[in-house]
Design a binder for these strands. Structure first.
Lengths: 195, 195
DNA sequence: GTCTATATGCTGATAGAC
DNA sequence: GTCTATCAGCATATAGAC
């Protein structure tokens, strides 16, 4: 019951990360100060250092958490079946996941260069792991004869770039539902890689 | 013949923009200081202000110049013909142009949020103009019956995102020539929008 | 756990000598 | 046109009171 003087909340930790997420996504890591984050949380700047050793860790934790969530969510949904079924599942998953987490996605793509080399290597490995699933699907499809023989690595990068681009224009209040967007992109992806 | 004391070069102006281009592309606008730019040019920080009123103008000038060049280059190449011919021309142009100007492209996509609202509006209008040509091509193809009926605006965004993504992985010293990359992407674009 | 205060250094931009 | 010197402010991070 007794509270240490000045302690107004025991959930300040998550709120710090949330504030950093919003501000980094909106203004960019380098342009956001610890004071701005503190103001958003409702504490003084010094108090932030109870929750993070430094600003870089804030960025890294956000990216790490995002990539972990992405891979974990993907692992739950992964299924067996034909390459075409797998590709549709991957495409719809990617679109939906990225629409639901626009801030995280934006940071994950834009702020890579603001990570220290060690942190960058770790995040990049996770991203590569995610891309590799798509590449494996495309390869399977080629072997099945349903996808056109091609440079699968480049196809992988092209498909991911196309899908991730949805975050640059999609607005929830816009004219299209997430379901419709899924379908449109799946149409294009299917045709793009098919024979 | 006589030179003002301290004047070592009459091409410092362009060198300032070039240095800013490289540094902004590598580290991001917000993370680069005027002192870093000055060091790259080989002058003191104060001297930069003979060439630019402020840091924001440096960013805006780089973006403006890039978009102007892009639209001018495109206008030179634009041609008449079938939608399929026009789309191939657009695709190959976009890939090649973006491979040749990776720094400019990177800045043009990553630093939009660091423009003042007025500057942003101006750049955004130019980008929209570029996108509109692609959208018109897709529409023509639908009318000709060679492209699948679809949401042309989303198709436009999807195609541009896919093509522009080439800058994230292409390396001149890599295993693929620019010609091969052009062909691979054209294959995918053609299939993605066709009936 | 949060506060205030502060250390230390870098920021964009300007003034005036040469 | 470039220099040196400087202004005023903000950066990250830390110290110590409560």
């Amino acid at each position: 019951m007794a509270r240490t003087a000045g302690s107004h909340s025991d959930i300040t930790g998550p709120r710090v990360l949330d504030a950093a997420l919003r501000l980094f996504a909106r203004h960019g890591y380098a342009a956001v100060s610890m004071r701005q984050i503190a103001k958003e949380v409702g504490v003084q700047a010094g108090a932030l250092y109870n929750y993070t050793p430094d600003k870089q860790s804030l960025l890294f934790d956000l990216m790490r958490r995002h990539m972990d969530d992405l891979l974990a969510s993907r692992a739950k949904r992964r299924r067996t079946g034909s390459a075409l079924e797998k590709l549709e599942d991957f495409t719809r998953f990617h679109i939906r996941y990225h629409l639901d987490r626009s801030d995280e996605v934006f940071i994950a793509y834009m702020e890579l260069r603001n990570l220290t080399p060690e942190n960058f290597a770790e995040i990049e490995a996770l991203r590569r792991e995610y891309e590799n699933e798509l590449e494996a699907i495309l390869r399977q499809g080629e072997e099945e004869g349903v996808f056109a023989p091609a440079d699968t690595r480049i196809e992988t990068m092209a498909v991911i770039a196309m899908l991730t681009g949805v975050t640059t224009w999609y607005r929830v209040e816009g004219r299209l539902s997430a379901d419709e967007v899924e379908r449109i992109y799946w149409d294009m992806v299917r045709k793009a890689v098919s024979v």
